[in-house]
Design a protein around this nucleic acid. Structure first.
Lengths: 155, 155
DNA sequence: TTAGTTAAGGTCAGTCAAAGTCAAAGTCTA
DNA sequence: TAGACTTTGACTTTGACTGACCTTAACTAA
């Protein structure tokens, strides 16, 4: 007896699989209508099952003609290094761990030298000026988002 | 799927690209006629998609024979463009301003499409989960750091 | 001259159409 | 039965579009 969230999840994943473009665009209200639920339930599903950690990227636009775009980061054949990375990072990452990860991505040629510099700069201690337990969490968020944004893409 | 504003934007950008002089002149009412919209919609498009952050300058003249001139101002070729960007950003940057700036860097070929994606992801609202006055400041910090990291370099 | 007319473009606040947020309430499950 | 997960809806934010009203410039006729 799956609940509505599971149904919506399955529905979206199926659509995504069938989509040749690698992403789908939905209208939140419309989808909610199909499943007879409140619109915010769609957000719940997205935020619990289509997160960066799961390898999805969500973009959206409000206002008239708004939409929600869901794309799956195509995990390259065989090695699902992304998932492993997420596991490695957890939800908190120190600067030195971040640097280590980036260096590894660089040496594996997953990212370019320039991209390395950009990402390193973004998660630098001196840039993320917030207090410590949160800084490492924020760093993890940013790092994951950046890596996910280009994972699975050609360099 | 694209709305009228997007169409007008695309139309103007295409004209601009094809123009040897680096600027185009249009008549607001005429353009509105072509797209079957009210004239003020042209202003809406200009003020949301052709801002200085995006690297455009709008000049116009009223009265008989009036016109609207749209010109694209390229970033300086030296390294001064960084300072210009800093000035535009100040110490607080909203998501939409950030996107505008990144789009400009992309169109000026200062950054690659991948780099664009990385930076956009890093400063996304959903990633920078802190309260609002500080979020925009943090975004400015991160954006500056990332851009600076690759500013002087060849692509 | 100069006042009036016409032909532009500008402004701004308001409406509507989305999507986002958050916390309270409900349900399940170990 | 506590804690995790789900569902709900009131409220917020953002974006697109519109129309009434304003300003400016050129032209024209007295």
């Amino acid at each position: 007896m799956p609940n509505i969230s599971d149904l919506i999840e399955a529905y979206l994943k199926k659509m995504l699989e069938q989509s040749p473009k690698g992403y789908i665009e939905i209208q939140r209200n419309e989808l909610a209508g199909e499943f007879n639920c409140v619109p915010s339930q769609i957000n719940y599903v997205l935020s619990t099952r289509f997160t960066v950690n799961h390898g999805f990227v969500i973009e959206s636009r409000r206002g008239g003609g708004g939409y929600v775009r869901i794309s799956k980061v195509p995990l390259e054949s065989g090695c699902d290094w992304l998932e492993e990375l997420y596991r490695l990072m957890g939800n908190s990452v120190t600067q030195s761990v971040a640097t280590g990860i980036l260096q590894r991505l660089l040496s594996e040629e997953k990212i370019t030298k320039r991209e390395f510099k950009i990402m390193k700069a973004a998660v630098d201690r001196s840039v993320l000026k917030i207090e410590l337990p949160w800084r490492d969490k924020l760093r993890a968020q940013i790092l994951k988002a950046m890596i996910t944004a280009v994972a699975g893409e050609k360099k």
